Simulated assay, not measured.
Amino acid sequence: MSKVSIDATDSLPAEDFKAVFRGHPGGVSVITADAGQGPVALTATSVASISVDPPLLVFSISALSSASDVLSRAQTVVVHFLDVHDIELAKLGAASGVDRFAQDQTWTRLSTGETVFDNVRAWVRCEVIERVQAGTSTVFVARALQSHIERDSEPGQPSHGLVYHNRAWHRLDENSLLTS
């Protein structure tokens, strides 16, 4: 397979690209990591499942993120999957210039050393298996090792999901259900 050359002058302007994705809602997650100098956390809407066997997920982080240096060196990460009960954690992970571990949000360390925020809807501990530079971001491929679900719902039923859409937080609930 040949490699395709990309000429930046042929690309969609950044503002147009951002406008397209503002209208595309994304599930909200907080990712934590620690490469030995203390934990970092950030809010992400780029988390997606890519394989069930083996269990793999993917997410991307901007090089401008204050957590990017630690994530570039961390062997493992914890991906926290949030719902509306976790909105304060989502906002904390999205805030600039704050110590995300000095706030009111409680957290612990797993026996394996990773940081986990308490009482979130669900989390998955992952081993980073690949990092791919893509433009101004890094795409992470991670293998799920361990999980915990604090709050679950029946398949097809509303569960108070949290999404980010058009620069705002939104709730998914029984009123947002179109069809089952």
Rank of each mutant, 00 (worst) to 15 (best):
S51R: 08
L172E: 03
G161P: 00
D16C: 14
G38A: 11
D99G: 13
P55K: 03
A94C: 02
S11P: 00
V58L: 08
S60M: 04
I87T: 11
F140Y: 15
S60A: 08
R131V: 09
L57W: 00
S51H: 06
H148G: 01
G36K: 09
W169E: 00
I6N: 05
D16G: 13
T138M: 11
S29N: 14
I149Q: 04
V124Q: 12
T45Q: 07
N175L: 08
A102D: 15
N175Q: 13
L145H: 09
R167I: 01
F117S: 02
A63F: 03
G36S: 12
H24S: 10
Q105D: 05
R100L: 02
I50K: 05
L110F: 08
I31V: 14
I6E: 02
A144N: 04
S29V: 03
R151K: 07
M1Q: 12
T112R: 11
V78G: 10
I6Q: 09
T115D: 07
W169I: 02
R131L: 10
T138N: 11
P13D: 15
H160V: 01
V20I: 15
V70K: 08
A35T: 10
I6T: 13
D10M: 14
S2E: 12
D34F: 04
V77E: 08
E154I: 03
V30I: 02
A8H: 12
S11A: 15
A48I: 06
Q75I: 02
I6L: 13
V70D: 07
